[in-house]
Structures are given as structure tokens and as C-alpha cells.
Design a protein around this nucleic acid. Sequence first.
DNA 1: CATATTTATTCGCTCGTCGAACAAAACAAC
DNA 2: GTTGTTTTGTTCGACGAGCGAATAAATATG
Lengths: 405, 405
Amino acid sequence: MDSMSITSLSPREIARRRLLDTLRREGPLARVEIGQHLGMSPASVSELTASLLDEGVLVAEEGGDTLPGLIRGRPKVRLFFAETLGSVIGVWTGFNRIELRLVDSAGRNRSSRHIEYPLRNLEADALLDVLAETITTFARDTGAPDVKAIGLACQGYVDTRDGIVAWSPVLGTRDLPLASGLGERLGKPVLIENDASAMAFAIAQHDPALRVGRTACLMIGDGVGLGFLLQGELYRGARSGGSEFGHVRLRRGGPQCRCGGRGCIEAFLADYALHRDAQLIDHRPAPTILIPSEEAMGALVTQARGGDAALLQLFREAGEVLGDAASILIQTLEPDHIVLCGPGTRAMDLLRPSFEAALEVQTIPALRSLTTIQVVESSMDLLTEGVVMQALRELDLDLARLKAA
Amino acid sequence: MDSMSITSLSPREIARRRLLDTLRREGPLARVEIGQHLGMSPASVSELTASLLDEGVLVAEEGGDTLPGLIRGRPKVRLFFAETLGSVIGVWTGFNRIELRLVDSAGRNRSSRHIEYPLRNLEADALLDVLAETITTFARDTGAPDVKAIGLACQGYVDTRDGIVAWSPVLGTRDLPLASGLGERLGKPVLIENDASAMAFAIAQHDPALRVGRTACLMIGDGVGLGFLLQGELYRGARSGGSEFGHVRLRRGGPQCRCGGRGCIEAFLADYALHRDAQLIDHRPAPTILIPSEEAMGALVTQARGGDAALLQLFREAGEVLGDAASILIQTLEPDHIVLCGPGTRAMDLLRPSFEAALEVQTIPALRSLTTIQVVESSMDLLTEGVVMQALRELDLDLARLKAA
DNA sequence: CATATTTATTCGCTCGTCGAACAAAACAAC
DNA sequence: GTTGTTTTGTTCGACGAGCGAATAAATATG
């Protein structure tokens, strides 16, 4: 239970995980239906579900509601997660905002909340205290029955195996043992994940096409992050982290980025960058780094749509950088899908012309046509959803191992 | 035999492949030794090798040469590939050069040859004719006993599953069915691969550290290519191709690349680029694109080492681009290893200062330290070796399937 | 009531792997 | 020689995971 480690899985564990994954995605399913989804024989499904029912992970749906009229044959008995398995809390920590979500073991949303809180200037210990306090309060307020684990999505390079934030554009600290620090305070296992990875995972849960082949999710918002999926599973770099694609430096001597560098993709596209540069245009003194509110960003976009030439130029440049970024992904990884997501897509109409022009200029046409690019309107809810799903999957495994031992 | 397709493998096929892979890499091995390499029990190895011996794929080493003196216990019986299994020809097609190699089923080099031939201005049919003719002649001259397959490494985006060159900086044609075209002419199965991928694979065969985790091989030579390995297996993008990382465009309005774009990584680092720019410095009219000889490149490097300021600046700029390229790889994929290879590393001493400076400026230090960067002095032999190894592995599978049917 | 239809379970089989016992082939010591 | 000792290789029984086929279960139809 304490480990939550990613090791190689036994055939049984793989089958179990696949079964529970589809059940979470597709809702209650009869055994034959599970077999169709997984390409397994009814016999095997029966065998697997027998032990899951026995363990109390799954329960058979109460008969009656799926009125067996009209359809001939023996009625389906749908299986689903037991209500008694407890719940999981998902957390996203932004620059000055915390998003919380409570789900049951089936992944269904029970409650969510978001809190404005400036996390940026806190020392490591203070940060952990605030997070622990916030999560505890949330759990108490929602009357969360039995919280089994916490999943936390945050910015930066996250060592998901050891639960360490190896690097972060927000925290000054390096190698912050976030999972253990929070785990000790809460007395529960904590799993952490890069936020763009979490969002990529969540988005892929809603579209089967993104779970085959290679999918690159570019999240634009407080920063710019990349979640890269291979066959529906998150790509892990060295030290089992994600990608810091947002800090690829495209323009030498470009604008200052909060990572300390210059000309990062993020330094053109992130909310703070657009807001800062807009301030500079208006000759207002721009605070070094400030995460603007959604309202402020909305106003910015509206003003640009109204025809403000200087702002339009700003978005044009951002779109161009986005096009360059997509070109790099295409020519390096040749993904089947690139998904643009996050709050930053609110200005997609402003970004698109220069985005497509840059894509045209920077990419070999024959390769460009192999990748489909789509925009997914995504709320920040997906962040907590993604990390919660990951935590639930780990719990599934832990439960299996607990039973095996 | 005709297919050579990449499908999902049965457990047996996986075990078989792993066994033959280690045997090719590690030379003749006794069964217990194989078990140690593969983490399998002697019982399983015995069972597997029994069928391989039965099929005639492997033979037991003749006793006597491994004099059993000195060591107590029953002497090892080493197994190795049968001599009678035939051979494979590996080919690399450069811009104006063809490299050929004949290996036996164990992957041991039997003969090699290289030919100067300007392939660049040929129509598709003429190209296929020349290649077929060259290969046939080579096979005849070397008295190749029984050529089972041909592996061909070439530049461009290669659909390895269907044997189609989807795009190439050399060929004007798009979607050239190279494997089938050559296969028909030679009456043998042909497997094609991107040349940087082939080299990456070959290099990884010689270093176990590169076969775990993530390894990015940057090949610098006629062009710049990337071979990306995950757990020792080549990464495949959409349409099962490799990467066209060399055509990532780093500098808007930069020098002309042979792909038609501007400012590609290749347009700074490839032999033709360095040579062309050196010509321009000397105010000589530079031919648009010409692949300089190894001697010409050697002279260029010598001249630069002699202190020629303009040339040094050229290499300095190339090194900077290389550093930028490595930074992109680090922050996008966070590989465990980056390997710099290919003829272009001949000038590594000239590239290094600006390479490292660029790496410093462009990369987040915490991430930079997770990736080890190494230079591998590699001859072009590795290209044919890589593609020949891939072809042999496919033959292994075909043989297994033939036997199963 | 019998029959059709669909769902779920049971049974026996195969496959791949392993541990343990056993056989084989050398050396070492007397 | 004969008798261990040591290491290699094989055989055998067992197990885990999956599947096909037969069977049982539960409903609708006529």
C-alpha cells in the first residue's frame, strides 16, 4: 500500500487492470460485453470477474432496473465497482489556485472545489502544510467516506516512481519529496504526476482513437506542458518523469520565462506571458510573473477580437510559436494525433492563422499529413480527473497484491 | 516469407527472438549461460533450444576446441547459428555512394564493398535497376551461398511495415514502393529502414546500457538523422516510420536545406552544408547541393584546426545548432542517453565548445543532468550492420512461422 | 408446455514456464 | 580404477492463464 511503485506486471495484473480500466470508462458492463471490449473469451472474463467479485471490488448490478423485457435470452447481469471501496481525492496545484475533486472507486465525481491561494512564495514545509490542510478540510466538508489515496497533479518534472518533484518552474526547491511529505501529513498514500500528463491521460480516456498509436497533448494555460501517450499509456522519460516541452527554447534572446531561460515556448503562449506582454504594450509596469485571472484573460481576448492591432500581433506571434512547436513534435515523434488543450485554447481563433502558417512553413508536407491536429475544449476539471484515474489504477494493483499476499 | 510484417508476437516468438538476439550479440553460449542472460530457467532454455536445434537454426559447437581442462564439472556445450542457413545482404544508399555487406545467419561479416555512384538524379525505375544490378553483382562476386533477404537503409521517412519510402530528401518521388520494387527484381524479400534508425540499432547492439530505457542517437553525416530506441527497440512514428529530426527547423530564414526548407538542423551540420558554406566563405561559387568526399571534409576540418577564423566560426555555429538540438531532445523526451555518431563527429573537437555552451543556455540544468551524452566513433559499416541485424530478426520470425504452418 | 435465444459457468485442453529430481560428463583424490 | 565432487543438461510434474466446447441458466415466443 505504501509503495505505489511502477514495476513489471504479471499477466494476471495486466488482465485485471485492463478489465477495470474498461469498466471505469464504459460504465457497468455484462461479462460478455467486457469480453468483446477486451478481446477475451467469456470463459476468461468469468474467471477474472469471479475473483474480483469475491474480493469485493466489483458487485453485480441489482436486477430489475434493466428491465429484461423486449430482449430475448437470458438477461445481462452488469458488473460495476462496489460502493464500499472508498474514494480518492485528486488535487491540482496551480500557481495561485488549488483544484480538488473527490471520486468514488468507479471514478465518478462526488464533489469538487477550487480555491484561490497563492502557493508561489511558500517554502517547502509551508507548502506541504497548506496542501495537507486544504485536502483535510475538503475531505471533512464533503463527508468523504473513506479516502484511500490522494492523487496530485503539479507543474514541473515529476519523478512519479519516487514521488519527487525533481524540478519545478514554481518551486525554488529542487528534488522536493512531495509524495512522502504529503503522505506523512495525511497518513495516506499520495501519487504525484505532471499536470500536462494528467490532462493527456484524462483526454485519452474519452476518445478511443487517442489510446492507440502515439498521441501528443499540448496543454496551454498557466504554462505549456506536453503529455505524450504511447498506446494509451503515458510516456516516461529518465527518472520516470514526463516532458518539459514547454521549456524548449525556440527563440534565442526571446522573452523571459519563469524557468529562468529565454524564448521558451511557454514564454510566448502561457497566460502569464500573454498578459505580461499586453501590459507592456499598454506601457503599464508589468509585474515580473503574475498568473492573471480567467476574467483578465477573457478581457484580453475580447479586446484582441475587437481589433486591437498590438494585441493581435501578440496572439499572432504566440500562434506562430505554437506552430513551430507542433512542427517539432511532428518531425521528431510523428504522432498520430496532436491535441491542443487547456485554457489557452480560448484564443484559438486568434492563434490559428499564424499557427497554420507556421506549420506550413516549418513542416515537411508529407509528414504533416500523417498527424491529425485537434483542439479539445478542456476545463481544468480534466487535470484532477486524470490524476485521480491514475491513482485509482494504482489502488487496483495494490488491492490485487494485498490479496495475493 | 513475403510479408516481413510487424505484428504482435506470441510468447513463444518473443522468447525465441530474445534468445537468438543474445546469441548473435554474445557469440556461442551454453544453455545455462543463455538462461543467465535471459533470466530464464535452464528447463525453459533447454526446451526452446531443442526445437531450434531440431529446426536446424542452431547447432551445438563441435567438442574439443573449448578444451575442458582446468574447469571441473560437465563441460559446456555452446550453441550457435548453423552455417547452412544462408546469408543476408545489407545495403546503404547514400547520396552518391552505395555500401554493401554480406553476413551469415549469425550476423558475422563475410564481405563488404562500397561503390561510388551518383544516385541522386535517377528516376525511380532507374534507381531500382541500379540497386538491383549492384546487389546482384555483389552477391555473384562474393560467391554468396544462399542469400535469404536484403536489408536496405536509406535516408528519408520510411514506412517499414509496407516497405515504402514515404518521403525522402533525395528522391523527388513520394511514396516509392522500394521494398516491393527491389524485391521483384531480386526475387527475394527486401526490408527497408531509415538509415539513422539502422545505425542507432547497431550501436545499441554493442552497449547494453543503451538497450534499457530511452536512447536517442543523432547521426551526423550526409544529413542529420535521429534513431530513437525504447528498451532497445526502435521507436516507430505514424506509418511505422522513424524520425525526421534533422529537418526540425531551428532558425527561421536560416540556410537552405535540401528538403526545401530553411534553417533545418541538417542545413548547419551535414557534410554538404559545412562544405557549401566553406565554399561561400572562399567566394567560390558553391554548387547547390553536393556531397563532398571524406577527403574534402578531412581537409576542411584540418584547415579549421589550423586556425582559419571563418571556418572556425562555421563549426562554432554548427556546434551551437547541435547543442540546441540536444536540448530539444532532452526537454521533450528526457532520454537516458544521447549518442552522437556518424562521420560528422570527426569534427567533434571543433563543435564541442559551442555545443556545450548551447546546451548550458538552452537546457534546464536539473534535466540536463539526467541525460548522459556520449560520442560514438562510428564508421558507415554500422549502417549496413544495423539493417542487416533487423533483416535477420525478421527472418528468424519468418522461419518460426514457416515451421509452425 | 416446448423452443429459441442469449448469458454465464464448467470442464478439459494447450502453452509456456518453473522447481526439483535426475542423468551426464568432466575433474580430483585416493 | 574407484569413488566423490562439480557443473551442465534433461525429464517430469505442476501451475497459471487462456480458450473452445459443452452445459446450465434465465428469459421470450408460440
